[in-house]
């Protein structure tokens, strides 16, 4: 069976003033795939990811989410964001709410899910990320890894079709990276469509279905991980992989 195209990007350009950060990006993300965006700092991968849920405005080109294009500055943006969840490098949990309140906030206020039902679903999600016992604590009490798992549960509570991860483990102490990657791997195995900006090469190789290597605002090379990591074609890719720790 052919996989549905969840995201399609054509000729995407984006500049900050004179700085051309995304240059003619073409990319697609298929249903249930995990696409890993890798590349050196400043290569434009986070900007590209943020364009996908309109946190950054594109200059030109096309972004189709499940076949539809969203006009900027309309209510459609909120609708699209219900389908495209996002997990940030710095978590951005709501500090004035408990873990459970963080998770039910958007379902109850955006989708108008009845509170009792939202709580039940939130508890199931917290169990899934292994944090059932933390439902009633405030984020300030959690470790970085726990915060990020709550952030994942919070994104999942909106039942998105696609999840975007912006360097989800880069702000974590090394010993906490594993628990977050394990949660992400579990999601991938359940068939969640994911786009992940990451420096974790072993995660990209093991969990990724498709690797996109960016440099200087362009997609330099992309392919399935096996081929990409063992037999890179572009000189720039080879250089990058040589300097990267696995």
């Amino acid at each position: 069976m052919e996989q549905k195209e969840m995201i399609r990007i054509r000729n995407l350009h984006k500049s900050y003033g004179d700085l051309h950060v995304l240059k003619d990006i073409d990319m697609k993300v298929l249903d249930s795939d995990v696409v890993c965006l890798i590349g050196p700092s400043g290569s434009g991968k986070s900007t590209l990811l943020r364009c996908l849920n309109y946190l950054e405005k594109k200059d030109s080109g096309q972004i189709l989410i499940e076949g539809t294009e969203v006009k900027p500055d309309t209510h459609d943006i909120n609708k699209i964001r219900e389908k495209v969840g996002m997990v940030f490098q710095h978590f951005y949990l709501f500090p004035h709410m408990t873990v459970l309140e963080n998770v039910i906030e958007a379902p109850t206020h955006v989708k108008k899910v009845p509170k009792a039902q939202a709580i039940e679903e939130a508890k199931a999600l917290l169990a899934k990320v292994g944090l059932s016992d933390k439902a009633d604590v405030y984020p300030s009490k959690l470790s970085g890894g726990q915060k990020q798992r709550v952030a994942i549960a919070r994104a999942l509570a909106m039942k998105p079709d696609i999840l975007l991860f912006d360097e989800p483990t880069s702000a974590l102490d090394p010993e906490l990276v594993g628990e977050v990657l394990a949660t992400m791997k579990e999601l991938a195995m359940e068939g969640m469509t994911m786009v992940v900006v990451t420096h974790e090469m072993s995660f990209a190789r093991e969990v990724g279905d498709w690797i996109v290597f960016m440099h200087d605002g362009r997609v330099v090379e992309s392919g399935p991980p096996k081929e990409f990591f063992t037999n890179p074609k572009e000189e720039r890719t080879k250089e990058f992989l040589q300097t990267t720790v696995f």
Binding site: R81, E82, G85, Y92, P95, H96, A106
Partner: peptide, 27 residues
């Protein structure tokens, strides 16, 4: 208040005013 708080709210499908009211102003 960290710009990320607004982005987190918006990325969950919350509107600008809802995020302001529920997330930004209480903090």
């Amino acid at each position: 208040i960290d710009k990320g708080q607004m982005e987190a709210g918006r990325s969950l499908g919350m509107s600008n005013s809802l995020t302001l009211r529920r997330i930004i102003l209480p903090q």
